[in-house]
Design a protein around this nucleic acid. Structure first.
Lengths: 343, 343
DNA sequence: CACGCCCGACCGGATCGGAGT
DNA sequence: CACTCCGATCCGGTCGGGCGT
């Protein structure tokens, strides 16, 4: 009865289903994948039954070609093992799932050149959108990146940057500068006057903005101009930088502002490993409110960022036709025990 | 001179390049994408120049169809925001990048039914391989999952499970049971006799194995049979379970074994929040050695897992033709301050 | 006779115009 | 004259066979 031919290689195709059901390709296509046209109930059932019997699943690549648009969104992060990016990715993936889209992920490893190369490679997927979560702005390769971005857009792909705004892209912003300023305000109110900022490399927009906001806020509150130490934005970099600072000598009551929570958490560990007391002796604050911040001791003072929600927003920005820039999410300062009041 | 026709829609196609270079489609294809055949240097240059001028990038979907094999690998995790999965994903992505493959990611959110549905959906990509990092084994839907897996394999896709072995798949294993047993051994040697295991849901293979190993090792070392409390494998679940335990009353010197580090870290926070002392009062141990374990206080005693390396191994298992199961990586117990010697 | 280019069939599916009842 | 199904064409590539030099 049914076709007993040994299937040569791969998965059952629409042709197979059509033959099995005794209908044309076009009809099978219509019942299995949406379409405006109608198909009589009898045919519909026959096709469905055949598809189930064969275990048919549409080949997404073929659909992408035929339809001229793919169901994928690309996400570019610095390192998916970093909780900051992990939470963002989680939000992106969640929203993508709801929209029936597939997420492909790539890591820049904080290398601007890799970022350009990856955007170019990702272009091959003809994604509906690309979410750039790891971007710098004033980088040396900004032009190359801009060019790639333009290419993506010319193929109908949306490009959205999360955090730092990149020219000509949709951007999901949050108020780095205002947040850092508010944080500095609270800290000066708590009595802090001396600070060191553990910043990222110059030109990294997110870092630059937070640095600017913090510096301004700290000055407004009566603090001294903070010293700036630059390094990678990672736990280990924060640890190393802090260890060096402690060797040089750091007075009690000094505040360390890690440009991001991972840096701050590295700093806390370095302080403890040096035999000093994080919080009461050397205070520490961060930015992002990654989940870990609740579990370190003392609890990390930081600026709350709704990371998963930001990821979800970014995805929506990447796929929605009618998208209007939402108001930048406003941030909330969370004072925990890593910055006790100075008496 | 050059064709000034307004490009209708999308990206430049190979046709465009061929026309621009004045060569045939086949020739353009051969120079731009590898091929055994040779093409004269003069043509090669003409084509390259044209491609560069147009900013051509091959359409991966079209290639996938034409070649009959796609350049993607799918990764299934429970939640990418969980550092355990984040580090694994990082390893997978890294290795994929080296192999010139693209990684698509999906989250099961710890729902077995979702897992089945996702594998089915992922099948549409005709991936070269699927890495299942979030799998249970003795689940109710095991049959459905097995069926989906078989389908993937029949289309030439490799399926590899990380951690728990799934029938008929390549598996990257690590010694959950032996590791937990070794951990229990060290802990009894430190003087612990009473333990509570914060385990995952029954049927979750990884959890079951660790539980079995720990129980056996603890008994061997002279400890009492541990009490078992089950919950989700997450920081919050660990926190809640521990808070409840503390309310019921937990004697000093009790050891809490979190089936995974995230659970253990939740436990530490719960102990501290309850006004007790993690480590000296209630000891805590975990499993996985996620990065955060170094930064909590006291440092978390755990079993080291080379998560990124495991991810990389899984990717290789998913794509290599000649793959032989590597020896299961052996694990190392790391005793830190969360389990001080009992006197 | 080799070498190296071009022609054409094909991959899996979407969609439009036409045809059958 | 409605409905609804089918054949043909196209999407963007790959690849083997044929053919000119």
């Amino acid at each position: 009865m049914t076709d007993t031919t040994v299937r040569t290689g791969g998965a059952p195709t629409l042709h197979d289903v059509a033959r099995e059901a005794g209908v044309s390709l076009a009809t099978a296509s219509r019942v299995l994948n949406g379409s405006t046209r109608k198909v009589a109930e009898a045919y519909r059932e026959r096709v469905q039954a055949a598809a189930d019997r064969l275990g048919y699943t549409a080949n997404l690549s073929a659909q992408a070609i035929a339809r001229g648009t793919s169901a994928t969104v690309a996400l570019l992060v610095a390192d998916i093992a970093d909780p900051y990016f992990g939470q963002i990715a989680s939000g992106v993936a969640h929203a993508a799932d709801e929209a029936g889209l597939i997420v492909t992920i790539a890591m820049t490893e904080r290398d601007p050149q890799r970022e350009v190369a990856l955007v170019r490679a990702l272009r091959g997927q003809r994604p509906r959108g690309i979410v750039l979560a790891a971007s710098r702005d004033t980088a040396s390769d900004a032009d190359a990146l801009t060019a790639e971005i333009a290419s993506v857009q010319s193929t109908g792909g949306r490009v959205v940057t999360l955090g730092a705004a990149l020219p000509g892209t949709r951007v999901v912003a949050y108020e780095n500068e205002a947040g850092a300023r508010a944080l500095a305000g609270k800290l000066t109110a708590l009595g802090y006057r001396d600070a060191v900022v553990l910043a990222g490399p110059e030109g990294l927009r997110t870092s630059d903005d937070r640095l600017a906001g913090f510096t301004a806020g700290f000055a407004d509150g009566g603090g001294a101009t903070p010293r700036i130490v630059r390094g990678q934005i990672s736990r280990d970099a924060g640890y190393e930088a802090t260890a060096r600072l402690l060797e040089e000598g750091l007075g009690p009551g000094t505040l360390l502002f890690g440009i991001s929570d991972v840096v701050a958490i590295g700093a806390i560990s370095a302080i403890r490993d040096a035999g000093r007391a994080p919080g009461s002796d050397i205070a520490v604050a961060g930015f992002d409110d990654i989940a870990t911040g609740r579990d370190v001791t003392p609890g990390l003072t930081t600026v709350h960022l709704p990371l998963e929600e930001l990821g979800a927003q970014a995805l929506r920005a990447a796929v929605e036709d009618d998208w209007t820039p939402p108001a930048p999410v406003s941030l909330e300062v969370l004072v925990r025990d890593s910055t006790p009041p100075r008496q």
